[in-house]
């Protein structure tokens, strides 16, 4: 079975809801910057599809444990209670949370909406390339006047 199949089978609709709530807690939307939440469909789908090797299993088990830690499922809690549980998670789930964080950051910061909110063009670097100013070459003048200082042999 390939990584993508394992990932989509691990995150059935219930676990997906927990994942959405957790991602939204980690990176919530921000109106001032017009930045979307990490829990929007595009990003969640990308996160699930981008987990490879044993990542779906590690993250899936972490979410299951998260749901066992309070009387209600994580996604049913209010914002403050979610944040408390997430803070606890940061103390107890180092490896699993790091695995999820890596995938999340990779997917969030390549999302069109996110890049647009940062004023960046949502495209591949090639073929258009980028403009970089030549700069003020007169800045080199003090160095030009310096005597050669490599060691003679």
């Amino acid at each position: 079975m390939n990584d993508k199949v394992i990932a989509s089978e691990t995150f059935d609709s219930q676990l997906r809801r927990t994942l959405v709530a957790l991602l939204d807690t980690m990176i919530p939307a921000n109106e001032e910057f017009n930045a979307p939440s990490a829990g929007i469909d595009d990003i969640v789908n990308d996160v699930i599809q981008s987990m490879s090797h044993d990542a779906p299993l590690i993250v899936g088990e972490m979410l299951a444990r998260l749901n066992e830690q309070s009387s209600a499922r994580f996604e049913e809690l209010d914002e403050a209670a979610r944040w408390d549980l997430f803070s606890e998670l940061q103390r107890t789930e180092g490896h699993a949370l790091r695995t999820l964080s890596g995938v999340l950051l990779q997917c969030y910061y390549r999302n069109d909406q996110v890049l647009e909110s940062l004023g960046m063009e949502a495209r591949s670097p090639f073929p258009l390339g980028n403009a970089v100013e030549q700069g003020d070459w007169s800045l080199l003048d003090p160095v030009r006047t310096r005597e050669p200082f490599y060691r003679e042999v």
């Binding site: 980690m26 921000n30 001032e32 910057f33 890049l115 940062l118």
Partner: peptide, 28 residues
């Protein structure tokens, strides 16, 4: 953008939650 986020989050300079965006924008 991704590499900035990794550096910021994993070095503890960019937090999760509400303040994430503001701190990210200080680094990117």
């Amino acid at each position: 953008p991704v590499s900035t986020a990794y550096t910021g989050v994993f070095s503890g300079r960019i937090p999760w939650g509400e303040d994430h965006h503001q701190h990210y924008r200080r680094m990117v």
